[in-house]
């Protein structure tokens, strides 16, 4: 379970990124964060693994508090938080398998890590994960030769390699065609149920949020204005979430 309370973030230029954001997410669910551009979706997502450090508030993952955590404790906690990105962020010259094995680096001790030694068990698990995302036959291909959708699946396998409790997805389908989008979103929804993961996805498309998410968090101008099951997302709620944008369009 991931519990967030009273998260605040102000940027050096005085812009308020997050204002008193709080919510609670259950394992085994997909949560979509939606809201207008610049509302603070990315700031929120990146605060969750303290990639951005909030000034106040708490983020608690299975009893471990992240906002006040020391560097070592944070590194420990991050092992349980996987992340996937719009641009996949794979190491392009390396094979798909090697990229998946990068998911073990958080647990690696320095010496075997520097020598690039992976145990047989790790390699087997990486292969199993590639199989799970449907890319076992591309394991030895360099990442740069894969298509966007395939790269994102390697990214997911890399995140899964961490045996995470949480996977943060930063606009995971923004660079993909509709078919790959469906593949990725279905895969994420399936994995959340199967592995009891807490999956949090930043999305621009309300339709996709409706279709794949169990829970929706609506962010507007740094505030959490909606936090409920997907079924509760009605027109009034949408109007609230996207209020600023319409105000701007209408002058």
């Amino acid at each position: 379970m991931l519990t967030v309370t009273a998260l605040n973030k102000t940027y050096p230029n005085g812009k308020r990124g997050l204002i008193d954001v709080g919510f609670e997410l259950q394992a085994g669910t997909v949560t979509a964060i939606i809201g207008p551009s610049g509302a603070g979706k990315t700031t929120l997502l990146r605060s969750l693994n303290r990639f951005i450090t909030p000034e106040s508030g708490t983020i608690e993952l299975d009893g471990l508090e992240l906002v006040g955590a020391t560097r070592a404790a944070l590194r420990q906690a991050r092992r349980h938080i996987g992340m996937i990105f719009q641009d996949y962020n794979l190491i392009e010259p390396l094979s798909a398998l090697e990229n998946v094995l990068h998911g073990t680096l958080g647990d690696k001790r320095l010496l075997p890590g520097m020598m690039g030694l992976y145990t047989h068990a790790e390699k087997k698990r990486a292969m199993a994960l590639l199989q799970e995302v449907g890319l076992a036959e591309s394991a030895t291909q360099p990442a740069k030769s894969l298509s966007g959708g395939q790269k994102q699946r390697v990214g997911i396998a890399r995140a899964l390699m961490q045996s995470p409790q949480v996977i943060l997805c930063d606009e995971p389908i923004a660079s993909l065609d509709p078919q790959s989008t469906a593949t990725i979103m279905t895969l994420l929804a399936k994995l959340a149920k199967q592995k009891q993961l807490t999956i949090i996805i930043n999305l621009h498309q309300v339709d996709l949020a409706r279709e794949y998410a169990d829970h929706i968090i609506g962010i507007n101008a740094g505030r959490c204005v909606f936090d409920d099951a997907t079924a509760a997302l009605d027109d009034a709620a949408l109007a609230r979430i996207y209020a600023q944008e319409e105000a701007m369009v209408n002058g």
Partner: peptide, 10 residues
């Protein structure tokens, strides 16, 4: 890789 908790040298 930083977000997965990997050390800088790795």
């Amino acid at each position: 890789l930083r977000t997965s908790g990997a050390r800088p040298l790795l």
